[in-house]
Amino acid sequence: MQLLGLLMVLTFGTGIVDAVGYLALDHVFIGNMTGNVVILGMAMAGADGLPVLGPLTAMVCFSIGAAVTGLVLGKRSAEWRLPITVLLLVAGFLLCSLGALASLVDNNLTTDVRVIISSLAAAAMGIQACVARKLAVREMTTVVVTSTLTALSGELFLVRGHKGLLNRRSAAIVVLLLGAALGALLAGAGAGPALIVSGALIVVVALLGQWGARIHRSCLST
C-alpha cells in the first residue's frame, strides 16, 4: 500500500510537468510521449503553429533517461533498493534545478532555452517511468493512464471481487487530472514553480521509499 501511494504521488507530479510543458514550454509533453508523437505527426502533415524540435528532443531525452535507468537497475528484483532511491533523487534534483533556471531567466525564456528545459525535464521523467516499470505495481506507470482507462472501462462490468483494483485505476486517473490542474495554475507564474514542485515531490518519494524499504527489511530480519 505504501508503494502504491508513492507511485500515486509521482503520477500527480507527472500531471504538473505535462501541464506546464504544454502551456509554458511550447506545447511539449514532458512525461507523456504519446502526446509528442501526435504533435510531430500533425506537424509533419503541415499543421500550422506546431513545434517539432521540442517534442522530438523530449522524446530522445526521455528515452535516454529510461535507457540509463534500465542499465543501472539491470535485472535486479522488483524491490525498492538504494539504486532506485539514487535515480529518483537525480530526477528530482534535475527538475528542481531546471525550475530554478526557468525562474531566473523567466523574462528571457527563449525558444532554445525552453527546448533545453523541456528536454532535460523529459530525461528526468524517463528515469521516473523506468523506475515505476521496474517496481511493477499494476496500473501504475506514473506517466500515462491510457491503458489504465482502457482497463477500467473494459473490465468495469466484468471484474468481480476486485474493487481495490478498480479503485486503483480510478485513483490513477484522478491524481493525474488533479496534477494537471495544479500545473495549469502554476504555469501562470511561469515554468519554474511547477518544475520545482514536481521535482520536490520526486525527492520526497525517493526518501520515503528508502525509509519504508529499510523498515520493511528490518522487520523481515527480526
Rank of each mutant, 00 (worst) to 15 (best):
A172S: 07
S103A: 14
L98E: 00
I117G: 03
T142C: 04
V197A: 14
R168V: 06
W211P: 05
P193F: 13
V159F: 12
M125G: 03
G154D: 03
F93D: 02
R160M: 10
L149V: 00
A132S: 11
G209V: 06
G164H: 10
L87I: 02
L149T: 01
V131E: 06
I202Y: 09
I173H: 06
G179H: 09
L208Q: 12
F93V: 06
V205G: 03
T110F: 02
G154L: 10
A121C: 05
L94A: 10
Q128Y: 01
A91H: 03
H162M: 12
L186V: 07
L185K: 08
L207K: 09
T148F: 09
A102I: 00
M125W: 09
L201W: 11
L177I: 13
V105L: 10
G161N: 14
M140N: 01
L88M: 14
D112E: 14
L101W: 09
I127W: 11
A129N: 12
L87R: 07
L89Q: 07
A200H: 01
T146D: 00
R114D: 00
L176V: 13
D112C: 06
M125V: 03
S103I: 01
T141I: 04
S119W: 01
S170K: 08
V90S: 03
I116G: 03
E139T: 03
L195K: 02
V131F: 10
A151H: 06
A124W: 11
V105K: 07
G199L: 12
N108Y: 14
A91C: 05
I196M: 14
T110W: 06
N167F: 12
K163D: 13
Q128F: 12
M140S: 04
V115Q: 01
A171V: 04
L166C: 09
A91T: 00
V137F: 13
L186F: 09
G164F: 14
G92Q: 07
I117S: 08
Q210W: 15
V137L: 13
L185P: 05
I127H: 05
P193K: 08
A200D: 02
V105D: 03
L152I: 02
A189N: 10
N108P: 08
L208N: 09
A121T: 02
G126E: 06
L166G: 11
Q210C: 10
A172M: 15
T148D: 06
T150M: 15
L195G: 01
K134N: 11
V113T: 06
